[in-house]
Every structure is written in structure tokens, then in C-alpha cells.
Design a protein around this nucleic acid. Structure first.
Lengths: 235, 235
DNA sequence: TCGACGGAAATTGTTAGACAATTAACTTGC
DNA sequence: GCAAGTTAATTGTCTAACAATTTCCGTCGA
């Protein structure tokens, strides 16, 4: 059985297994996967489960199936890299340095602009949520589970305050990935600069409606996280 | 049969049908879809086809299924809005003005930054492809099919030149959506400013490695496209 | 009156096997 | 050597049954 310990439907588990195998390079682009019947035997499940898993992978652009030709791994450029699950699968293996850099480059493009928008558009309720999240972060620190989820809520609130649902969606994806980089980072016993003061600054800039300050502080925040992550990956 | 005229596997067709129904609001968030057996009868296909379609929708974050509870439409905030297929489904109905504005706002954030990167990093081969695309655009105009695909290739080449695969992925999604806004735009018989000269300017800026110029020109390009599209939607 | 506990029923989850449709690969004929 | 037809392998689809999960309801008890 594919469901050794894990819970949830078998097709979800299997999609994850196959997805990780593909993104980590076990099945390079262009490769034809084993036939459905063979996969079924291999994983000890029925063909239906295999097929439903493959449909999920094809919905994410990872594979495409054709009769007689089999199921082929598509070019990496065609994958929906911004799919949150796909990003998570990427971080199951050891993500390449280039990929992590791409991620921080994207953050550097999107998040400062979002902070600018948020500084102008934020509602009182959103502001209150941001403030609360910052408080929790300050009290718990960023090494605790609560502190990290507060961090995520803080940034999610900013993105939501932009009033742009595409930015929100992009945020969910990025947040999923950032969560993993943070996980890696704090696995490595190095000293990092405390990011809490910058978070406070960012909150105040948004509260004051100071778009420029919000942009600048966000840039510094991401630059620092990027440096810390690279240091951790280098070790 | 669900496959009246359309080709391709039934589960793909059906996923599209159901996906469009969901994103256009036929099944609002929180709604429970009809049971698999009922859907099967409704569309004249077997339960397997229904299930494979639902797996595709769940892979895009549109729905989630649980035994006894049925298959429920998730909150819009949880949809993978940047999935190219999902974006295409959005434009099957009449996309809201707010959504189109979100799209152009995102373009305004991402593409100028990408142009900057491209101006610095572009290879000779990429430059040559951009130049060729601009030439085709100039000769064919943007109302022809060839001209529009050349436009898409031009912008795709820019994104690719950034060397950031996450930006490339984001580009594929945005391009899919932009294609629809362009389609709408030219369905409306209005006079628009000719975007070809700006494309030439952008190409030259990237060729010269002038990052600032590339950013500024891209901003003007998107602003103009945004204005034109809003005018067309207003009519 | 409210809560906890437990049972029943509905729905998805999974399996098995069969046949159809598609198409890549081969074979044959020219 | 090329084209057309044939074959065979693979995905695509259907049916039917049973398992597993979990919501919902009803009962019991405090």
C-alpha cells in the first residue's frame, strides 16, 4: 500500500510521491512514466488511483498523457511553478541555489510593490490584524511555531490589503515556499539579525500611509532574509 | 455525452465545463456540488470521468472533497488564480472590471522589473528573437493572428531573458490572460494608439542594456494597454 | 436544557475487470 | 525510399460492487 503511515486519500499521497519524484529529477523532462498498470502494481493500488493522481499532476502542468504514447513529463518551463503544492514538492528535495535566488528575486519584485499599495489602501481591520501579528512575533520570536505563523499572517494581511486578488494568490504560493526556506534557515545554527525591528518599522509605515517607507523597509527585509538563507544554504 | 463536438478526453472537457461554471459563479464558494453519481447522470458519463475531472479541479484549488460531505467549492482566495487554465476559464464569462484591473496592476508590478532584468541579462540569441518578433509585429500589425502571437513571443522572450524561472512561469499565466483582454479589445471598434513604436523603444532599450529606459517604456506600454482595455470594456 | 456518546446513513474512496478509442510503430506494397 | 494500411500497446471509458469516512441525528445522561 502507498499509505504506509500517511493519512488522506491514496490519490493525494500518490500524487505527492510522483510529483516529488518528477520535480526532484527522478523522471526528467521528456521521460515517459511507467504505464498505469505497472504503476498500479508498483504502488499496490488500483489503476483508478493511479489515474486520478496523474490527472492531478497534469492539472499542474507536470505531465501529459496520450493513448499508446503513455504519460510523458513535460518541459520544466510548462510546469505551473507557482502552484503552492508544486512549490512545496520542490522543497522536499534540496532546492537548487538558483531556484532559491529566483524565489527571493520574485519576492523582491512583488512584495515591495505590494507594501506600497497596502500602505495606501489598508483598512482599519487589516491594520489591526497586522499589528496583532507583529505583537505575537515580538513576544514569541521567529523560531517558535506561533511566531512563524504570525509572521505569515502579517505578510498575508499586507497582501490582502492591496485589494488585488491576483497578488493574494501569488502571496499564498510564495508564502508556502518561504515557509520552507525559513525552516531550512533555522535548522542551521547560525546567528541571524533579528528581523522583528524591521517588521515593526514596516507596520508603522503602513499605519502612517507612507508608501515609500513601506517599500524601502520591505526591500531591506527581503534582502536580509535572502542573505541569511544563502548563508544557511552555504553551510 | 459531454463531448458534443469537442475533441480530447472527456475528463478534460468536463473539467473545463465544471471549472467555468464555478469561476463564473454558477456554484458560489461554499456550495456543495451535486454528488458524483448525479453529475455522472447529468452529463451522461461514468463516475470515473466525473472523479478524474474533480481531481483536476481540486489540484487547482477550486474544490475539495470529503466522504459524506460531498465536494465543496473552496473560497476564492484559495483558488490558484495564476493557473493558466483557470485564468482562461475566468475569461470565458465576462470578467469583472476589478479583475481586469488586478491583472493590469500585477503586470505593472512584474513586467517593468522583468524588463530591467532582461536589459542586463539578455543573451544574443534572446535579443535576436525579440528583434524578430518586433519586426513581425511591425509588418503584420496587432490585429492579425500572426502579429498577436509575435507580441506574445516578444514578451515571453523578455521574461525568459530574466533567467528567473518563476518569472517565466508567471509570464505564461499572465500571457494567457492578456491574450483574452487583447481579444476583447479588438472586438470593440475603437481607435487605439499604435503600440508598435513603444515596442521598438523597449527592444532598443534592452539591446542597449539600458535598464532604466526598459522599465520606463514597459510602464508606458502597460499603462496604455490598460487604458485601451478599460475603454473597450466600458463600451 | 444542554452535552456527550453512539449508531445509522450518505458520500466519497477504492477495487476489479472488461471493452473502446486512439495512435505510435511496424509492415507491406509500390 | 516512400506511402498506405495493419497491428498492437496504451490510455480512455464504463460498470458494478464494496470499503472507509464522517456528518447527522437520536438517545441517554447530567
Amino acid at each position: 500500500m502507498v499509505n504506509g503511515e500517511r493519512r488522506g486519500p491514496a490519490h493525494v499521497t500518490l500524487a505527492r510521491t510522483l510529483g516529488v519524484a518528477i520535480v526532484t529529477g527522478d523522471y526528467p523532462s521528456g521521460t515517459v512514466l511507467p504505464g498505469e498498470l505497472e504503476l498500479a502494481g508498483q504502488f499496490g493500488v488500483s489503476r483508478s488511483v493511479i489515474r486520478e493522481s496523474l490527472r492531478m499532476l497534469s492539472a499542474k502542468g507536470l505531465v501529459e498523457s496520450r493513448p499508446k504514447a503513455g504519460t510523458r513529463v513535460r518541459e520544466r518551463a510548462q510546469w505551473n511553478l507557482l502552484d503552492p503544492e508544486l512549490l512545496a514538492w520542490m522543497f522536499e528535495g534540496a532546492p537548487s541555489l538558483g531556484f532559491v535566488r529566483s524565489l527571493f528575486q520574485l519576492r523582491m519584485i512583488v512584495e515591495p510593490a505590494a507594501a506600497e499599495l497596502a500602505a495606501v489602501q489598508r483598512s482599519a481591520a487589516q491594520l489591526s490584524r497586522m499589528g496583532h501579528a507583529v505583537e505575537v512575533m515580538a513576544q514569541q520570536g521567529l523560531r517558535t511555531q506561533d511566531g512563524q505563523t504570525a509572521d505569515q499572517r502579517f505578510h498575508a494581511a499586507i497582501l490582502e490589503a492591496t485589494g488585488n486578488e491576483l497578488l493574494v494568490s501569488l502571496s499564498s504560493s510564495i508564502a508556502a515556499a518561504v515557509r520552507w526556506t525559513t525552516f531550512f534557515k533555522y535548522r542551521v545554527p547560525l546567528q541571524y539579525r533579528d528581523p522583528i525591528p524591521l517588521h515593526r518599522e514596516l507596520f508603522e509605515a503602513i499605519a502612517n500611509g507612507d508608501a515609500t517607507a513601506a517599500r524601502v523597509v520591505t526591500e531591506r527585509l527581503i534582502a536580509q532574509a535572502g542573505l541569511d538563507t544563502e548563508r544557511a544554504l552555504g553551510a
